[in-house]
Design a binder for these strands. Structure first.
Lengths: 185, 185, 185, 185
DNA sequence: AATGAATGAGACTTCATTCAT
DNA sequence: TATGAATGAAGTCTCATTCAT
């Protein structure tokens, strides 16, 4: 029983990691199952022992990522804000980004065709909503003139940073983040 | 003669616009030539009178976009900075974005496989380099503490705005841009 | 328009005939699309210009057969019975069988998986129901002891004849039919 | 030893029965070895300890059926005809049919691809030849006008009955058989 | 120039079979 | 003996591209 479970899990892990990398590098459609099998050094058919289809493989990647995102934001909300909610949010985002680079790249890139795919994607977005709300409230309470717009600008800046970090090697995201936070002291 | 030429150009224009829309909506791989021909109301075979291949059609879209980008930035560099180079850059970017939404969406989305594609894409980037440089110099000359980092943050904020504008209908990009510029007064 | 329509119809006809033959000879599952395309001397992909799937090709065969069956039985019911309803039914059945040997073989053989397939098959059966009813009534009115059972036996004999005719070359179905009819004088 | 042998035989029996059922229900091609292994609650790999291949499993079913058919006909030929050879043949056929419904269904349904398969099938047919010959002689000796044709009609009627019995639940085959026999008194 | 029929390489997927344990 | 993980040939289907008219 457990003998097979181990092999299963190993294979599943290899498939998921390879697929995530290739999907994020080349896109979902441009990545063939053969591509994945060659890179993962498994047989072409093995994928279908564990995933019903290419689509389902993608969904599984998203679902697992969704869980990680959920955990990350749950942790964030649990902690009391160290100095400011903004700093906490930004630092967490950067930390998560570094720890889950491939998945973040995938999220940015992927065009979901299926309804289920879009649903999972929107669920992932919902996860962050509470944390964003916390930041938005922080801005509202800070007495800043246009708190809603400020929130929009802040999230734009963060997402822009993320985008550049994912696109360029050696992007000094920590420094840029620090500079960003200095604007909100 | 000229009558045929006119019709030809019209067809080409329709194809390019339809293809751009579909590529940006569904992705390059997920859009078939038949799709485009149906939407553009051009017969399938005729597509190949105008474009050698699907790849070439994509390249043509990028090349024409590249020309527009080049013109836009040329115009930008020609004008004297009204108040500040930053404001000029941001306003131009927003204006261009609004005028070329589909193309910008395509640029964000598309995964270029071919070398030629990547080359065109990098050329487009180079177009903006001069304008970015102008902004960077403005920041350096302004005596701000970390001008290079500031530039990175500024471009991140701009690209984040662009990203959110393209993703959401009704995104108040002018207001967010105004707020952003207020930080650099 | 008509120029292409002709080619379309020719191709469709070739595909349908070849597929019917192969399905009835080897069974649906054991017949590959490649098989059909090779025998029909068309390209593999052409089938998919005209039929969405192998399943749909099968359905189309059944539907067209269904129409022919319907016409045949309509004709049968229109005519007044020459001597007896039984003779009329048997002769018509034999005539139809000879004219549509491949389709009859297919009907006998095929295992329908899909609901739609089974539906078409049951529709075909319904077509014959009225004609069978006419025969049944004839038997009831004839004062024969067990008319319902007689009908069952008669239809069994007919179907057995059909089965043997389809299985063996040179089966003297006309003579067997004549002999059968002599039992009901 | 014997304990293992027993278990082995039990497993083989379960596999054969399950396979026969599935083959006759869904067809040979549409039934996968995995299907059989799941229904028979035998592990996939173990199947191949008992049968070299799917084809060979089918052959084994046919061979065992062939033996049963042979025994049945041997028994039939051993007995003296009670009243008539025809009655004896029909009653035996019905009895065998009821006792081996699944196998009979399989025989009707299956399209044999391999030579060996067809050979076994033709052997099964040969088994019945002697019994059929007895019936044919009975008809010839009875002074009936067209004995050969009468035989053909009789066997057609029987096979038609069999066909209807296998296709419909609650088919009153005994009654139909009785009625058939009444024609030959 | 214009049409859509035709082609076939390559994608996804299944499944009989083998292999490692 | 028994298990199910792993393999890869072969099937269905898609679609960029060519061809005949």
């Amino acid at each position: 029983m457990s003998k097979f479970q181990l092999k299963r899990d190993q294979s599943i892990q290899v498939i998921l990691e390879t697929a995530m990398r290739l999907f994020s590098e080349k896109g979902f459609e441009a990545t063939s199952i053969r591509n994945i099998s060659l890179e993962a050094e498994i047989s072409l058919g093995l994928m279908y022992n564990y995933f019903e289809s290419k689509e389902e493989l993608m969904l599984e990647i998203l679902k697992r990522g969704s869980v990680i995102v959920k955990e990350a934001f749950a942790e964030l909300l649990k902690e009391p804000a160290p100095h400011s909610a903004i700093e906490q949010y930004v630092r967490h985002t950067v930390k998560f980004l570094k720890a889950n680079k491939a998945f973040c790249k995938l999220l940015q890139t992927v065009h979901l065709q299926s309804d289920e795919g879009r649903q999972v994607q929107s669920e992932i977005k919902k996860e962050s909503a509470a944390a964003e709300e916390k930041v938005r409230h922080h801005l509202i309470n800070s007495g800043i003139p246009f708190p809603e717009l400020e929130a929009k600008l802040l999230f734009a800046s963060i997402d822009g940073m993320v985008q550049h970090y994912l696109a360029n090697d050696n992007y000094p995201i920590d420094d840029v983040a620090t500079l960003l936070l200095m604007k909100y002291r």
